[in-house]
Design a protein around this nucleic acid. Structure first.
Lengths: 186, 186
DNA sequence: GTCTATAGATCGATAGAC
DNA sequence: GTCTATCGATCTATAGAC
C-alpha cells in the first residue's frame, strides 16, 4: 500500500504525455524524470533499454488501447452504423476533441518511423482493416469498404494536424462530423 | 563564377531536406554541416540566429513557394475545376507522390508549433482560404466552399501521414484521387 | 567567407551507496 | 527501488586565425 510506483504500467501515461508533447528527439531523460517524479536510476530500473524502450512501451500501450477500444469492437460489430459511431466517440475522447496529438502519427512523420517501424505500420493497417471489415459487414463491397476505411483513417490524422496548426479544436470536430456523415450508411 | 555558396538561398533546399528528414530537435548542426558542406562558422555567418533562424528561413521559403505555385493560382482562377486540378498536380509533385513529408505539418504536431506559430497557422489558413475562394468562384456557396476546402487540406495532410506510416506511396495517390473526385464540380 | 578549436551546457546512460 | 554523482559523447554557439 505504501508503494508509490512499482510497475512500468504506472508511469506509462505520464511517459506518453511527454513524448506526445516533445516528440522522441525532444524528450530528454530530464523531462521524463520531472514528469514522472522518478530519478534516472529508477527509470533505468523499469526500462533497462533506456529512452528507446520507454517509447516502445508507450507505443505498445497505445496499440493495446486501440485494439481493445477501437479495433476489436469494429471487428465483431453486427450493426456497423452503431460500431462506426462508437469508433468516432472513442476517437473524440481519446484525442480530447483535437487537443491531443496522435503519437503514432507524429512518429510516422519523423524518422522515428524507422526505429519503430513495426508498431507504426501495424497501428494504421490494423485500424484500416478493422474499419473496412465493419463496413463490409454493413453490406458494402470489399473494395469500397477498404477505400472508405483508408479515407476515414487518413482524414482523422489530417484533422489532428489541421486542428493543431490552427489552434482550433473546432476544426477537428468539424472534420470528424464530415467523415462520420460520409461513412454512415443511408 | 567561382562562388560555390554565397547566399542563404543557395543552402535552403538542402537545409529543408535535413529538417524534413530529422525534425527540428533531431536536426543537429553537425548534420546540417554535412548536408550543406558548410562549416559551422559559415552557417552562423549566413544565419546569425542559429538553428532557429535556419528553420524559420526554410519555413519562409516553403510559404513563398506555396503562395506562388498554389495559393495565388487558386485565387485568380476563373475556371475552378482547372485550378483545382492544377493544385493537385502541384501538390503531387511537391510531395513527391507521398515520398516527401510536409515540414509544416510535422512542425504542427510537435512543439515546434509554438516556436513557429505564425508560419504554421498562416500556411494552413492561407491554403484553406485560397482553395475556398476558388470553389466559391466555381459557384458553391460560401459555407460549402469553406467546408470542402478544409476537408481537402486536412485530407492531404492525412494522406501524407498514412503513406509514410505504411511506407506505401500508392496510399497517398489513392487519397489524392478521392479528394480530387469529391471536389471537382459535376 | 570559411575554417578549426573550443567553450559551456546538456545529452543518454552507468555506478554504487543506501 | 531510489537516489546522487558522474562518465563520455554530443549539443549549440562563439572566437579567432586565415
Amino acid at each position: 500500500m505504501a508503494r508509490i510506483i512499482n510497475e512500468r504500467a504506472d508511469v506509462l501515461p505520464r511517459l506518453a504525455e511527454v513524448f506526445r508533447s516533445h516528440g522522441y528527439e525532444g524528450t530528454s531523460l530530464a523531462l521524463i524524470s520531472e514528469a514522472t517524479g522518478l530519478g534516472k536510476g529508477s527509470l533505468y530500473h523499469f526500462f533497462p533499454g533506456g529512452k528507446e524502450e520507454m517509447a516502445a512501451a508507450v507505443l505498445a500501450e497505445i496499440d493495446a488501447w486501440f485494439r481493445e477500444n477501437v479495433f476489436a469492437p469494429l471487428r465483431v460489430a453486427s450493426e456497423p452504423n452503431q460500431a462506426v459511431d462508437a469508433m468516432f466517440d472513442a476517437v473524440e475522447r481519446y484525442f480530447e476533441k483535437g487537443g491531443r496529438v496522435c503519437l503514432v502519427g507524429l512518429f510516422a512523420l519523423g524518422d522515428e518511423r524507422d526505429r519503430f517501424s513495426q508498431a507504426v505500420s501495424a497501428y494504421f493497417s490494423e485500424w484500416i482493416a478493422s474499419l473496412a471489415q465493419a463496413l463490409e459487414t454493413g453490406g458494402r463491397d470489399r473494395i469500397a469498404a477498404r477505400d472508405l476505411a483508408e479515407e476515414t483513417v487518413a482524414g482523422l490524422q489530417g484533422a489532428l494536424v489541421l486542428a493543431r496548426s490552427l489552434r482550433e479544436q473546432a476544426a477537428f470536430l468539424r472534420c470528424l462530423q464530415r467523415l462520420k456523415a460520409r461513412i454512415t450508411m443511408p
